[in-house]
């Protein structure tokens, strides 16, 4: 099972992305997407924003599970108050709750990042430390 995580800024430009391989269910932590999906993953993740835009102002929820799918890959979105989107693209099934937990911790991490005076809102995150922390959370939940 593999996950593609991306953080999309309020201007719909990517802020951060990470390929995550799961350790659960006898997986070895290696990210495996078929080539065609791997090539398209950014586009698939982004295309779910169209649907999010249609519903985000009609709903009070932050977490949208299985909002969109393409070639059998589902998209999960966590929308922050500042219109930052955390998106996960995966072929795993029945992991709604773990993904939600993952998003909540990721949000905390992102907020800490946002507090840094050296980080500009919507600018790309290139910190290795951030990646390590995200991987740790992923290991916990995904």
């Amino acid at each position: 099972m593999s996950y593609y995580l991306t953080i999309i800024g309020s201007n719909n430009a990517p802020v951060y992305e990470l390929d995550i391989g799961s350790y659960k269910q006898n997986s070895n932590g290696i990210f495996k997407f078929p080539d065609n999906i791997n090539n398209l993953k950014q586009f698939i993740a982004n295309s779910s924003l169209d649907i999010l835009e249609n519903i985000q102002f009609n709903s009070q929820q932050h977490y949208f599970n299985n909002i969109d799918s393409f070639y059998g890959y589902s998209t999960f979105i966590f929308l922050t108050q500042s219109n930052i989107k955390y998106i996960i693209l995966t072929n795993s099934k029945n992991l709604d709750e773990s993904i939600r937990q993952f998003f909540i911790e990721l949000n905390e991490l992102y907020l800490k990042k946002l507090l840094s005076p050296f980080y500009d809102y919507n600018s790309p995150i290139n910190s290795k430390f951030f990646t390590t922390r995200v991987k740790n959370i992923a290991k916990k939940y995904l």
Binding site: N36, S47, D50
Partner: peptide
Amino acid sequence: LFSKTKMNMKKCLMISSFID
């Protein structure tokens, strides 16, 4: 259809796949 329904990102995904 996506361009008519103002779903730009979806449209892009289609174009991207088409181009691929």
